[in-house]
């Protein structure tokens, strides 16, 4: 039998990953509904905050729309990690490992579902936001950039989930990341622009927190137009997270599969 090409292998694993994602609405529905609920609540609840001198927009909805992109990313981290951990737990991975598939094809494929989800959710969040009256200042190019950034964010965070799954091999451990990542999200510039955070310690934490720059990358496209530096930073951080954790995941998986 011919050895299948890496592309073929990746495509097949990816197909399974995308199908598995679509067929489990219980997995992705909360990632869609929950962030939209929060943004709806917060945009009404915190609209008064736009009256703070120096606030960059007069619509808190526009300001807060970046948050769902991050929350969807966190859900994708959990889902990608849980899927892989379950594959490890129930022996599915062993079965795949007995086929001549390369481990990078395996991991790339596993992440495909997550990236598709990121892209779709980005489009939905944008559409819902615009329908609800949010501003979008960066035009058609901005839409493409936004969807690319949404996919990059879910890919990067998905790699973190895959790394933990490959390293520890337990879906419970992956679920345990949820509070940790919520912490990252909460202690970022999520709810207030960094310069307007009053408490010095909080501003320092938010400045050191990479999540702040991902949020600001998305938010910039809504509020102020295409800002090369801001976007480079956001995409750069995504790339760094992806490379580091993909490398770690590949190594962890090699150790696990013994090849």
């Amino acid at each position: 039998m011919n050895r299948p090409s890496t592309f073929d292998q990746t495509r097949e694993v990816a197909r399974r990953s995308v199908l598995a994602t679509i067929r489990q609405p219980a997995q992705w529905a909360p990632a869609l509904i929950f962030p939209l609920f929060l943004v709806a609540v917060n945009s009404g609840g915190l609209n008064a905050a736009t009256k703070i001198p120096g606030f960059p927009t007069d619509s808190y909805l526009t300001f807060a729309l970046a948050i769902p992109f991050m929350q969807a990313g966190i859900f994708s981290l959990l889902n990608a990690g849980t899927d892989l951990a379950r594959d490890i737990e129930d022996g599915f991975l062993d079965r795949m490992a007995l086929t001549p598939i390369s481990r990078s094809a395996l991991l790339t494929g596993e992440l495909a579902g997550v990236v598709v989800q990121g892209f779709m959710f980005g489009a939905i969040f944008l559409a819902v936001g615009l329908a609800a009256g949010a501003d979008f200042e960066s035009g058609a190019v901005g839409v493409l950039l936004l969807l690319a950034l949404a996919s990059a964010i879910t890919l990067a965070l998905g790699c973190v989930g895959i790394f933990v799954a490959a390293r520890i091999g337990s879906s419970e451990a992956v679920q345990g990341l949820f509070p940790l990542f919520f912490m990252f999200l909460f202690f970022s510039s999520m709810a207030m622009p960094r310069p307007l955070i009053e408490q010095d310690w909080f501003r320092a934490v938010a400045t050191a927190n990479p999540i702040s720059y991902l949020i600001e990358g998305v938010r910039g496209l809504f509020i102020s137009g295409v800002d090369g530096e801001q976007l480079a930073l956001a995409f750069g951080i995504c790339a760094a997270i992806t490379v580091i954790f993909m490398f770690g995941a590949t190594r962890a998986l090699s150790a696990r599969l013994g090849r």
């Binding site: 022996g91 062993d94 599969l257 013994g258």
Partner: peptide
């Protein structure tokens, strides 16, 4: 009995 030994099959 599930006795998978991941270190068992080195290449």
């Amino acid at each position: 009995q599930d006795e998978h030994d991941h270190d068992g099959h080195h290449h």
